[in-house]
Amino acid sequence: MRSIVLLSGGIDPLSGRPAPPQGEIAAIGLARSIGGAAEGLHAGGPSPALRLAAAHGLARVDCLDGGGNAVEALATYLATYLGADPPDLVLAGRQARGGEDSGMLPYLLAERLGWPLLAGVIAVGAAADGWLSVMIGLPQGARQEARVRLPCILVAHDAAPAPPFIFDRARRAELRVVPVAGPAPVAAEGAAEGDDRPYRARPRLIGASARTGAGQVLDHPDIAEAATVLRDHLRALGVLGPSRGASPDA
């Protein structure tokens, strides 16, 4: 399986020094966990952060020169330059650092390519019949299995296992400048456009529940019974989503 990891010219927000963001390191980790060839891809010139990212497990990073805005450049590269041998997977971090940093790029690229996208991926399983099984990381350590059709874009969870930094790889990594047809890169216009909406007051669930005064006191309950009561109460408050099919405790 061939994977491509999208890399940004990461800048450390505190020091301003080159530093790949955690999410991109995690994406490299996912790409390596699948096995097969993994390469880096960056829309822009070779920056020192790319070499630091490659230290986590990439032998080569292609740096795109030209091609319009980042999404167009990446899409053109994937369609034209990899046309004969297209990647099965494109992986990205949650948010770039040192560019526009909107976190929108993978979504815009998925829209442009017409590929499915899954975010918050914490582990990748096996591929079968053109489908890939992945594990999504949810808040508070919850995990959810999912399947996605290949080829697809996966956005790595920041907490996905990060491969170690190896200086030997950094110094051997090849940063290749690839000219891409199209206008010179301009500041991506409209990439992070959104609608201005007036402030909307949202219901405060915890405050609201405290005011209701309703509740149920259980004295030394059975564990299963207590769990059921708690779950139903949280569902009633809308904190937990409705039951989805057969759950292990049902």
Binding site: R17, P18, F165, I166, F167
Partner: peptide, 22 residues
């Protein structure tokens, strides 16, 4: 450290901070 990146977890953090935040 340089050839295998096999350093203890705590030391890895220290090295990363040295690299990225000086």
């Amino acid at each position: 450290t340089l050839m295998k990146g096999a350093v203890p977890a705590g030391a890895e953090q220290v090295l990363r901070a040295s690299r990225e935040q000086a």
